[in-house]
Amino acid sequence: MDMSIALILSQDGITNGAIYALLALALVLVFAVTRVIFIQQGEFVAYGALTLAMMQSGVLPATVWMLVVMGALVTALDGGLALKAGQGRRAAGVAGWNLGYPLALAAALGGLAVDELPLAVQVLLTLAIVVPMGPMMYRLMYQPIASAPVLVLLIVSVALHIAMVGLGLLFFGAEGQRTPAFSEFSLELGPLMVSAQTLWVLVVSALLIVGLYQFFGRTLYGKALRATAINRVGAQLMGISPTLAGKLTFFLAAFIGALSGVLIAPITTIYYDTGFLIGLKGFVAAIIGGLASYPLAAVGALAVGLLEAFASFWASAYKEVIVFTLIIPVLLWRSLTSHHVEEEE
């Protein structure tokens, strides 16, 4: 191994690490605010990438129908409650957002020649389809059991993960997809050949991390989420709705997932079940951060990415083993250094 190989491997590791970092941040965020271990994070990655790929091949992405169905269920639940309470205007609002919006989106997609739109518009449409599934999923699956033990929430996540993989197979088919790069431009830095897509991944990840930092530090909603993460009951007493916090968190997590998918779709072939492995590596990183610390999770993600790149060079047959075995010393170290808090029953 010489310097140039080490540099190329580092570049590869950092690119993958950036994606893992985004996913790890989303996992930490979701766990901190709602105590949900968000296993289906990876599925949002695959849904994002494959929805974009379907648009580019000129097919109406089936995910939009999933959005319509989820929206209809939310409307039935929330709209029904609002009507019962005699809040007609609120019911109309619920229906508008949860039913009107998906239907309008489906109509727009059906009417447009989606494969001829500029890439930026396709990306926005992809996000417009996939991201609202996050808060809807929270409303339908997690809100009714928001105070259940972590284990119950985890089991719901596993179920949703399996359901989403199955639906993914139905929507996108068994074959993999690759989308064209955002631009063909590439940069030569000594031995390094940095493609535009790599730069996109790094820049967008960095912007997103800074954006999240600002969001949590400066805005009222961000502070509300932080408050909920630190003390759920206390935050509720201060007038912060745990439902709103949950939906907002899932919105962010779905956004991060779908955006990651869109970013990596030109770099690698995405299958309907690829998301799980990517999500798991984000999870390893989140564990390094103890499912609580954002900076540690981000550092952990870069470490996972780099370890993976170098392991694939030195011992490619054992790459996954090496990456996932990392979790054992990390857990050991965490359980020895941090002090354990029993979960309230």
Partner: peptide, 12 residues
């Protein structure tokens, strides 16, 4: 070696 599900094989 690489895994069918791998997203990167740069090292190899």
């Amino acid at each position: 070696r690489f895994n069918p599900a791998d997203t990167s094989v740069t090292g190899q």
